[in-house]
């Protein structure tokens, strides 16, 4: 009898009429949909609840990585403020700061290199080109790529620009310091978002 019970139709009902069965199925479906909607709302509420730049114990500002099936991202500005693309551009070519062009090429910079070669020349070819980067990634994904690209590409050569843990033998002057400050991440990000 027990065996028969397990084998029988949906929701484990024995000898149910067809209208009863569809009623139960419908109810199940309704519960499921409600659950999904609730889950979605609560996640959004969680994101919405997080604003500005609270500081964690380790000195870095708090941020939350959103892990969806198709994309991982950080939705909110690390500094709580929008970035300045002009400052971002300067940080990208600064060897002691972002130094993005050590590995990445960008046509806008190649054009500028014609008149200011000491600032823009010698772009690297290790990473992908930054041309049209804003069309390939959403802002939140790009922010996470800057913060810690290994969250998306575990084997990448790209440094994590806003992380201070899980390192080996960091030299003293750089110990417990991220490469860039929260506002600097936002500045670079705002410049990248203009590359459509």
């Amino acid at each position: 009898m027990r065996f028969r019970f397990l084998k029988s139709g949906s929701c484990g009902c024995v000898k149910t009429l067809s209208w009863q069965r569809s009623l139960v199925n419908g109810a199940c479906f309704l519960v499921l949909v409600t659950f999904v909607i609730l889950a979605f709302i609560s996640t959004n509420a969680l994101i919405a609840a997080e604003t500005g730049s609270e500081t964690e114990e380790n000195g870095l500002v708090k941020f939350q990585i959103i892990n969806l099936i198709h994309s991982k991202s950080i939705q909110h500005s690390l500094s709580g403020k929008p970035g300045n693309p002009k400052r971002g551009e300067a940080l990208m070519v600064n060897r002691k700061k972002g130094n993005c062009i050590a590995c990445h090429g960008l046509d806008v910079f190649a054009e500028k290199a014609k008149t200011k070669p000491n600032i823009y020349a010698d772009m690297g070819e290790i990473g992908p080109s930054l041309n049209g980067i804003a069309g390939r990634y959403q802002e939140g994904e790009l922010r996470l790529l800057l913060v810690d690209a290994k969250q998306i590409f575990p084997d990448t050569i790209m440094p994590a620009f806003y992380r201070i843990e899980r390192f080996t033998r960091v030299d003293d002057p750089f110990l417990n310091k991220p490469i860039l400050k929260p506002q600097e991440i936002e500045d670079i990000l705002s410049f990248l978002m203009k590359q459509k």
């Binding site: 290790i126 290994k150 050569i157 440094p159 080996t168 033998r169 030299d171 490469i179």
Partner: peptide, 17 residues
């Protein structure tokens, strides 16, 4: 072994690139 603040191993430059 990845090392330093830039978190790169020898291989990242001299084997892969």
């Amino acid at each position: 072994q990845r090392r330093g603040q830039l978190d790169m191993s020898c291989a990242h430059c001299h084997e892969n690139n």
